[in-house]
Each structure stands twice: as structure tokens, then as C-alpha cells.
């Protein structure tokens, strides 16, 4: 079990992670969702012992992972910038990982490199953005680390490579269950892989729940303005728009059966909201009041 308590990361006056408390059970795939600059990478850096938190604690099974040899060995953290030597050839990068990581699976690394069509003789500096990302995926998955953290590793990958990534990730997870945290803001195409989603915004935790629960969170209510207003009163409104006398609001929180029934009798139409839309609404630009309301 990974436990974060009041975790805070600051850079000078900038607060990147603002008092996050979170528990992650082992051997699940987590989706860490947040817009750019929401604090995802800072949070993950602390988890991977790449930096110390300014305040708060991280423990893995009760032990602080920072500079703990066993726990750091059991963690693989892949950042979008890749922590490899740019002048090295891919073959050398993979060989190096194999020499240092006791859990490295060289055969699997070769398989993945084939899947992503990586030429082992190419230097890292000569790779395209998407190929760099693919190399990151190879390093992250072939490490077979009990805690595998992939931070926006799909950048620059085309749709085909991303599909291959998701397929390989799932297949390898099924064969070798472990804790995987995948940070992303492209939720639509990966949501199915996540057992749970964690949404952070402006350094704060917005929600952490089963993906299926998250899916059922949003509802779009459409109808005559007055009726919509009345129904929405006292609920968390994520977004609203009007067209003539018709009004539509996006509400947060699943409706009970009797509430849905009441809405229909009031002449309102209810429609589910897709996960990507829900995420966009939840983390909408410049609306701190709403964020506060959700907390």
C-alpha cells in the first residue's frame, strides 16, 4: 500500500503539490489525470524518490522510499524527457538498464522494441518525439518493477503506437500484475485500462475513485430554463449553456432513481457525460470556486 499524507511540493513561491492525501492499493492500474502544470509530475517524482517532499510523507508498506535501496530498485519512473544519455544508441540504453535492474526482462525488451519498430543502432538524439516515447515505454515495462510509473509517456506517438502501447501494457499487466500509475490527459482512449482514476488540479486532489464510478458522475440536464434552474439548485454545476429558452447544465454526482424520475416528470432530458468531457469540466480553466466546491 502506498500512502501519501498531506504531501506538498513547492518550487520557491510556486506550490506544485498542495497537501495531497491518497492511498493506493498494490497491483492496480491507476490513471493520474490532470491538466498540464497541475502537479502530476511533481507528485510522481516524490513517489519515485526523485525528490523529497517539502512537507508531508510518502510511505510504501509503511516505509519511506526515499533513498531506500530495496524500494527504489522496485520502482521504475519514466519521464517524458527520458533519463538516458542522448548520445547512446538504443541497444546500449537497453543493455545498461539490463545490467542495473535485477528484474529486467531482456527478451521482453527486445519484443517491445520490435513492436515499436525501434532500430537498436539509432542514437537516442536521432529519435523522433514518438520514438523517444516508445523507448520510454520499453524501459518502463521491461523493468517489470513492482511500482511502475509512466508520466505522459505517449507524447508524440501516433494512434497506432499508442494502441500498441495500451495493448502491451495490459497484456504485460495481466501476465505480471503490479502497481502501474499512468499519468495522462488523453483519458478517452485509456479510461478502460484504469481500475481507478485520480484527478488532480492545481496541485490538489479532486477525486480518487473507481473508473466506473467516475464514468457515472456526470449528467447533462436539458430543458426549459426555469425547470433546469430549479432542478440544478443545490447541486454541483460543472458547466452551463443556453440556446433561446433552452438551458443545459452539466451536473456532477450520480442521480438516484427517484431524482432522475423527478427530472423526467419536470420535462427535462438527462444524458450521460463522457469521461473526457467530465474531466474537462472538472478541471476547467480559471474556475477555482468550482474546484473548491468539489473538495
Amino acid at each position: 500500500m502506498i500512502s501519501l499524507r498531506d504531501l506538498t511540493v513547492r518550487y520557491g513561491d510556486t506550490v506544485a503539490v498542495d497537501g495531497i492525501t491518497l492511498d493506493l492499493e498494490p497491483n492496480k492500474i491507476y490513471g493520474l489525470l490532470g491538466r498540464n502544470g497541475s502537479g502530476k509530475t511533481s507528485l510522481l517524482s516524490v513517489l519515485a524518490s526523485y525528490r523529497r517532499p517539502c512537507a508531508g510523507t510518502v510511505t510504501i508498506d509503511g516505509v519511506d522510499p526515499f533513498e531506500n535501496a530495496a524500494l527504489m530498485r522496485a520502482t521504475a519512473f519514466v519521464r517524458d524527457s527520458l533519463d538516458v544519455t542522448d548520445q547512446d544508441r538504443i541497444a546500449k540504453v537497453l543493455d545498461f538498464a539490463g545490467r542495473l535492474r535485477p528484474t529486467w526482462d531482456a527478451g521482453y525488451a527486445e519484443h517491445l522494441a520490435d513492436v515499436f519498430e525501434l532500430d537498436r543502432r539509432r542514437r537516442v538524439s536521432a529519435l523522433s518525439r514518438g520514438q523517444r516515447s516508445s523507448l520510454g515505454v520499453v524501459l518502463g515495462l521491461a523493468a517489470r518493477a513492482p511500482l511502475t510509473i509512466l508520466d505522459e509517456v505517449y507524447l508524440g506517438m501516433d494512434a497506432g503506437a499508442r494502441a500498441a502501447f495500451y495493448r502491451e501494457l495490459l497484456a504485460d499487466y495481466l501476465a505480471h500484475p503490479r502497481t502501474i500509475i499512468l499519468s495522462t490527459h488523453l483519458i478517452e482512449e485509456v479510461a478502460g485500462l484504469f481500475e481507478q482514476v485520480i484527478v488532480i488540479d492545481r496541485g490538489r486532489l479532486l477525486l480518487h475513485e473507481d473508473t466506473d464510478t467516475f464514468r457515472a458522475r456526470g449528467v447533462a440536464v436539458t430543458g426549459p430554463a426555469a425547470a433546469v434552474e430549479a432542478f440544478a439548485a443545490g447541486r454541483t454545476v460543472l458547466g452551463e449553456q443556453s440556446l433561446g429558452g433552452v438551458r443545459q447544465v452539466t451536473l456532477y454526482g450520480a442521480l438516484a432513481d427517484h431524482e432522475a424520475e423527478a427530472a423526467r416528470t419536470a420535462g427535462l432530458t438527462l444524458a450521460p457525460v463522457g469521461v473526457q468531457d467530465l474531466f474537462v469540466h472538472l478541471t476547467a480553466v480559471g474556475d477555482t470556486a468550482r474546484t473548491e466546491a468539489l473538495r
Binding site: 524518490s49 527504489m72 530498485r73 538516458v84 542495473l100
Partner: peptide, 16 residues
């Protein structure tokens, strides 16, 4: 500059 992150990224502590 060259090697610290390379080793830490492969699960080595700063101490080691």
C-alpha cells in the same frame, strides 16, 4: 550531469 539521473532512473539510490 551525465550519470546521476541515468543510474537513479534504473533504481539506484543516490547513496549507492
Amino acid at each position: 550531469g551525465l550519470h546521476l539521473r541515468q543510474f537513479v532512473a534504473n533504481g539506484v539510490t543516490r547513496h549507492d
